[in-house]
Design a protein around this nucleic acid. Structure first.
Lengths: 226, 226
DNA sequence: TTCATAGTTCGATGCTAACCGAAGTGTTGA
DNA sequence: TCAACACTTCGGTTAGCATCGAACTATGAA
């Protein structure tokens, strides 16, 4: 009985559409003001204020004052993780393909998932690698092919250093915004590092968004094609 | 906006106390009748029936008819996992140390978490391994030590077969009933398999409970100690 | 000081949904 | 065929809470 009460308490905080929209808007890790969140949720300021008070009291949010602004953010990683899991269930259950995922275009296009590229560009990259026989997919398993080994070495990645480590080299990671796989593992991380080193892309400070430079975008497209 | 709506839809299903109690009661993996769930939630049959209809329509539950009984169970693993995560957040936030976790003693002591041992015994095992320098914990990372490698080989586990696989060998998994970590990953799974092979323990059919045999319990304690 | 902006608090309103009793459906057993 | 049981559906009541406008507080700028 007690277990259910706790469960309900947290879930009901997330269970209101206005609050859920606010929480979803904060999933990129940024902190937003009360006004911005009100806009995001489609309610007036007083209503938003009441919701924010509840979320804070419930421990799901953390607030910092800065002058006359109050910035709200998710309380911690655990809360963000919980929201991801719930969205995962929602995505798996809802057969409605009506463009799920972040409203934030930049987030949907390219973002950091731990330490590798996710979003539409991440999925496109993964698909291209498989298409070109650089990666071999077998169920949930992903492995480097001979061609792939040559290709990534050529791209400037030290594959030898990854072998035999605890962390898997290739791993498929399900993208909640697109519901398709992208590349994780040490190779996924190394590729993203290389993108940054080549100045093709950089992380936007304080968020999980990845911004590609115009030339970087071009090089990226080229890399997938040939 | 759409993301928030999906989020709210699922969360609000869990967010009602009566429904949350029902879901919590089903977390041991068993299937219960509508009457039993009504009792569990503390509502009358008609009320429970309405809730169960909603949960089923929402995809969180699965129903099977058996004569004049209707058995309700959680839809799948993903749903059970989501509930675990939410309870984890609730436990982390609620400063009420009033003995959180499953009312069911057997569940709290030892249960399956995917494919490895969780619950009090799982946590005790993890602690002992770290204490004895078989595992090295560094933040969220867990790694095998040299001593650990020798120990687990000696215990009859084929560590070589795990290396280089997609799945991590060691992983820490947060236990919602005890709020401490236990061992997951392929090593965690292999250890549990070994327990079963040695007849120290077995899964109770249809539930997530793990039953240790008396000699198994003794051997287990010995294994942790020396 | 005065004005503007950001946010909270208050009071009133209205809608949703949880709830129960009573009646209805379907299954089992006699 | 009838009675008992398990469960669902229906109708009506009630309580909670999301919502908004208006008034209030606090910070910053002129």
């Amino acid at each position: 009985m007690k277990a259910g009460t706790d469960l309900a308490q947290i879930a009901s905080l997330v269970g209101d559409p206005a609050r859920a929209n606010m929480l979803a808007a904060l999933m990129n890790g940024a902190a937003l003001t009360a006004s911005e969140l009100a806009l995001e949720a489609g309610v007036t300021l007083p209503t938003a204020s009441a919701h924010l008070a509840k979320l804070s009291a419930g421990g799901l949010m953390r607030m910092t004052r800065q002058g006359r602004h109050r910035y709200y953010a998710l309380a911690d990683h655990q809360v963000a993780g919980m929201l991801e899991v719930i969205m995962g269930v929602a995505a798996a259950l809802g057969p409605k393909k009506v463009l799920p995922g972040p409203r934030d275009n930049a987030m949907r296009e390219a973002r950091i998932c731990y330490d590798h590229l996710a979003g539409e560009m991440g999925v496109a990259m993964f698909d291209a690698f498989v298409e070109r026989d650089l990666l071999a997919v077998n169920g949930d398993d992903v492995a480097l092919t001979k061609r792939g080994t040559a290709f990534f070495c050529d791209f400037g990645i030290d594959l030898a250093a990854m072998q035999g480590k605890r962390r898997p080299v290739c791993r498929a990671c399900l993208d909640w915004s697109v519901r398709r796989s992208h590349l994780a593992g040490s190779l996924g991380a190394a590729i993203f590092e290389r993108f940054v080193a080549l100045k093709w892309a950089r992380r936007e400070k304080g968020t999980r968004i990845i911004r590609f430079t115009p030339p970087g975008r071009q090089s990226f497209a080229l890399m997938l094609r040939d």
